[in-house]
Design a protein around this nucleic acid. Structure first.
Lengths: 334, 334
DNA sequence: CATCCTTGTTGAAGCGCTTCAATGCCCTCC
DNA sequence: GGAGGGCATTGAAGCGCTTCAACAAGGATG
């Protein structure tokens, strides 16, 4: 294994010079730098991560805590994770993957051991037990998602309240007076993950302003559950002509069920989805949707984090504005 | 920040004693151990990862390289990644998330810097350019997936050849004489990821033995693509009564299309899927399927890797035997 | 011409841990 | 009663890097 000392000897300079060439923290003459770089290449030198971390007390690693459960929004999570990894690399950081399994203990371990310089938490609950640790730590962190109390925290999320509002507005503009929301599984609401409630909140309050009626029904992932939900909705409010779906898994079954019942989309029923773009585009009827900007969320989280590590950056909540794309699934009310 | 030396002072022992209590590499009297453990707790000590890595030249980190593209099998990837993280933690390792983006360079970087003790590679191509590096490295590695030449490598994968065979057998036993395979997107075959080809191979050769006709069609993810594929299949071979689907995204649209055409599943057409269990269970018709054992693959990969790190373990290919679960989508040929 | 910067380079002191060789101690055994 | 052996503990030497203070060698300045 090649060490910095060997590179120094090979280049005929001192170890510190090599170090400064690598870090750029001191001016080095062009000649020396080129010589050192050449030696590095010739010897195939890679700085030792452990030694570097020890000496500089910076690991150049960002920890990413993903939820353990894989019952929901998996592709979104994955896309965020990949965006985080990619953006982090662009800033010279690697990403350590932590699962929610260990819970707060993982936060303590990572902060205590200096394994990572900072952390990103996904799938934060409204009253997450990891939050006090983060507030107390002098290690920067960013949440993807919004807890109840964001004081002293940096958060990135899609503005779900605005998303809900946007969906109603679109449907209202098309003349729909009664709409229904097919939501996430009941467990998601019970868990108080926040985003689901916020969507409905935004939707309801805008609907009230616009004089639109709203029926909200959580809904599990299975085909039968979706069928039952849809039946109930149409029984209770036969006049429902607009559907907002916030449940990836329900999208395709829902369209199949409507087709089966002889309800045409969008002639009889308009459907607006809140889901990853790919799902909306590839659905059997291309869906008018607000897409979940997974990449953007991952990227922003890292940018904020890096800013905080570098001493720039402040505690703030960054809500990403939703964008509604009109596709084939929404039209004028019958 | 609490250091080992402070713990030692607090406990009234030497630094090495504390170290040995932590690592268990030397016998320590019960009294001393308890005293040290108490001090550790009282002071809230966490060993510094960098220092530990430097001194022991072991980082206790496993690198996991996931594919950058998110066009396929994302939930499976995620499940594997989580299984890897969970299993790794159980062995005292953390997981570093690398994207395929950097390609071979990432392998070089991680191996060279001692950032990780070992690596797991997902989504290996038949002739992957990272393989020579792995063969040459003295760092252990495990592949999830099977390249063309497995010499000197350790691999874990579902036995896709057997999977293909199993699907035909099931359909043949039910009396189907003409079956069609709806495969992954054409790009997957062009990329030579291996598993898709192997499935078809196994399927074809068993079909030949059983005197069953096979038509294989790659198929993109969109609804239209699936509709086109299905139409073509039924035009070319109207007698087709069994379908094997190896394409998560095609499952639900396919069922919807069959329904629309008035073909009942399983009375008119039997469908066997190769997909994650959740997809099979939650489909509009619960699907007879061979499930992709994502968790098991992740777990086994880590177990192999840990064995190799500890000097046990050998280079070998572990193929996981497929299991076919009969659900509602397959029945006797018409 | 002496003084003070500036620029480029270096030596040496750690960073916090692991681990080897060495030490002391008590117990057993002849 | 002394030699030998096992057990528990320790001191000290690094692991490979960063970084601080110090120092040469010019160049500009008064």
């Amino acid at each position: 294994m090649v060490t910095l000392a060997e590179v120094a000897r090979h280049a005929g300079v001192s170890a510190s010079t090599v170090s400064y060439v690598l870090s750029g923290k001191r001016p080095i003459s062009a000649a020396t730098r080129l010589q050192v770089e050449q030696s590095i290449r010739e010897l195939g030198y890679h700085p030792n991560a452990g030694a570097r971390a020890l000496a500089s007390s910076r690991s150049n690693i960002i920890a990413l805590m993903v939820p353990l459960r894989t019952d929901m929004y998996v592709p979104v999570m994955m896309e965020i994770a990949i965006a985080v990894a990619t953006t982090a690399r662009a800033h010279g950081y690697d990403v350590l993957l932590l699962t929610g399994e260990e819970g707060p203990e993982a936060v303590r371990r990572v902060i205590g051991s200096g394994l990572a310089d900072a952390m990103i938490l996904m799938d934060v609950e409204l009253d997450d037990e990891r939050l006090p640790l983060l507030r107390g730590a002098d290690q920067p962190s960013v949440l993807i998602g919004l807890p109840a109390d964001t004081s002293g925290l940096t958060c990135v999320d899609l503005d779900f309240r605005a998303t809900g509002a946007l969906c109603v507005e679109h449907l209202a503009m098309l003349g729909h007076r009664d709409i229904a929301v097919i939501g996430e599984a009941p467990a998601v609401y019970e868990r108080h993950t926040g985003f689901a409630e916020r969507t409905v909140d935004g939707l309801r309050s805008r609907a009230r302003e616009l004089g639109v009626g709203v029926l909200h029904r959580p809904c599990g992932g299975g085909y039968d559950a979706i069928a039952a939900t849809l039946t109930r909705i149409l029984d209770e409010r036969p006049g429902t002509s607009g559907l907002v779906v916030q449940n990836e898994q329900a999208v395709e079954p829902l369209l199949a069920l409507l087709r089966r019942q002889g309800r045409a989309v969008p002639e009889d029923v308009s459907v607006v989805a809140i889901c990853p773009e790919q799902v909306a585009v590839q659905a059997s009827v291309p869906l008018t949707s607000v897409s979940i900007p997974a990449q953007e969320m991952g990227r922003q989280a890292v940018e904020h984090l890096v800013a905080k590590i570098d001493g720039r950056g402040t505690d703030e909540v960054s809500l990403i504005a939703p964008e509604l794309t009109v596709r084939a699934s929404s039209g004028a009310a019958p």
